[in-house]
């Protein structure tokens, strides 16, 4: 019975975090929310008697994939020049849409 309550709470947190991951304006917050979805999903796997899957999800879903997203976000942001315009490969200047 206790497990039922815990799993319902975990489900509420996972769904709220999925909503934040889709609808928050800041990409940074959205990526963190995706990591949190993975982290709480790993707790859910532990309740469902799957410790192997929980270990994998905790290491990969909330650790490594978040880091890779951050690297890509940093790369994309550093491509923008200081005046807010974007530089394309052939040197054209493009204003941000």
């Amino acid at each position: 019975m206790n497990y039922l309550i815990i799993s319902i709470l975990l489900g509420i947190i996972i769904l709220i975090m999925a909503g934040i991951a889709i609808y928050h304006k800041e990409s940074l917050v959205a990526i963190i929310a995706t990591g949190v979805v993975g982290l709480f999903a790993s707790v859910l796997y532990l309740l469902l008697a799957a410790p192997d899957v929980a270990m994998t999800e905790a290491a990969i879903g909330s650790g490594l994939s978040t880091i890779i997203f951050f690297y890509v976000l940093n790369k994309i942001r550093s491509d923008k020049t200081k005046d807010g315009s974007l530089k394309t490969k052939d040197g054209r200047q493009k204003t941000e849409v």
Partner: peptide
Amino acid sequence: PGGGFQGGAVIAS
């Protein structure tokens, strides 16, 4: 609990 995939992910972290 554990194995190659989990250990590999921990090493990568």
